[in-house]
């Protein structure tokens, strides 16, 4: 290239200067001893590991500055293993750097492109090979091959069908039905409206047949947060207000963004915060999203009390709880 210039000679490698160990027998001897000591330290590490594994009890703790109380057995095994490995490595490297020959050598590179003759020959070979298959002439084989190749990939895909059931309406339904009692979680106790002080927050689950063995997939949809405010603190429309009971309002605890548990409630601001992505919901305004990536409010559960005065759901959730999905059909 025109702008290339090489004013400095590039033919020779830099002068090779000998190391102390190359010229001075004393330092050569010293380097040898150093390598031996390093290998020795590795052996000490291995022994420390063996000793800790066999003889140190797992309930012995020792105090180490900065780190505090440490389990002696774990630490002994760990430090022993670290030493046994690390010092083998350091010894080998020290050996290589001080005592093994340090003369650099040169290999030559060759362009990767094949010669034109080789390329032409390859093309010829491939052409002959392809011609030997005679796909052009044998129409019947060609077509049947097409059918076979088109179909043979389907069975393996079909065989994966039983990986899981079809979604159906599962994502849109929960165990909340009209009249389902709200039970404390944990404890499974029904709740009287009067049990809740103003400002209280309680996590509840629906009453179901087998409360001791709720599947986790139910717990991924059913949890509801009960929050009691003074009725005048609500800024709700009439319909939403009718869904509350004496200042008690119920929201799905499953975040409408990505399904985390919306577990943080701030008393003073009446905000619910999801710890995963910080979506923030305003309880007084029907869990309206006031910050963060969530696009929808938390679904509100319509609640009332039954004949015995216990809190129950008046109706199921009127929308799917949890994160969005393609088939979800409500604002």
């Amino acid at each position: 290239m025109s702008n290339e210039l090489t004013p400095i000679d590039n033919s020779a490698l830099p002068q090779h200067s000998p190391r102390a160990t190359d010229v001075n027998p004393a330092s050569e001897k010293r380097a040898e001893q150093q390598v031996a000591i390093l290998f020795g330290l590795s052996a000490v590490g291995s022994l420390l590991l063996i000793y800790s594994y066999i003889f140190v009890k797992d309930n012995v703790f020792i105090f180490i500055p900065i780190m505090g109380n440490q389990n002696a057995q774990q630490l002994g095994i760990g430090i022993g293993m670290a030493m046994s490995l690390f010092f083998i490595g350091i010894a080998a490297i020290h050996w290589a750097k001080t005592l093994m020959p340090d003369k650099e050598i040169v290999n030559h590179r060759h362009e990767f492109r094949s010669s034109d003759e080789d390329r032409a020959e390859l093309v010829q070979t491939v052409k002959e090979g392809v011609a030997g298959v005679q796909l052009g002439r044998r129409k019947l084989i060609k077509r049947s091959l097409g059918v076979a190749a088109g179909l043979f990939a389907l069975p393996p895909v079909l065989l994966l069908r039983d990986l899981g059931p079809l979604p159906g309406k599962k994502l849109e339904t929960t165990n909340w039905k009209a009249g389902t009692r709200l039970l404390t979680d944990p404890g499974n106790r029904p709740i009287l409206a009067s049990d809740l002080e103003v400002g209280a927050v309680v996590q509840v689950l629906p009453a179901v047949a087998d409360m001791e063995h709720r599947p986790l997939s139910d717990i991924a949809k059913d949890p509801v947060l009960l929050i009691r405010l003074r009725p005048e603190e609500f800024q709700l429309d009439a319909q939403r207000l009718a869904m509350t009971h004496e200042g008690i309002i119920a929201f799905s605890k499953i975040c409408s963004h990505m399904g985390c548990a919306v577990a943080l409630y701030e008393q003073t601001t009446k905000h619910l915060l999801c710890p995963c992505h910080q979506s923030t919901f305003d309880v007084t305004r029907a869990a309206k999203v006031i910050f963060g990536p969530a696009a929808r409010p938390l679904p509100q559960l319509d609640i009332t009390v039954d004949a015995e005065g216990y809190l129950v759901a008046r109706a199921p959730f009127n929308e799917a709880v949890g994160p969005s999905f393609w088939e979800r059909n409500s604002q």
């Binding site: 490995l85 490595g89 080998a92 490297i93």
Partner: peptide, 12 residues
């Protein structure tokens, strides 16, 4: 020697 040793160093 250097590369083999370096494996032990990384592991250590």
């Amino acid at each position: 020697a250097k590369a083999g040793g370096f494996f032990f160093v990384v592991f250590g």
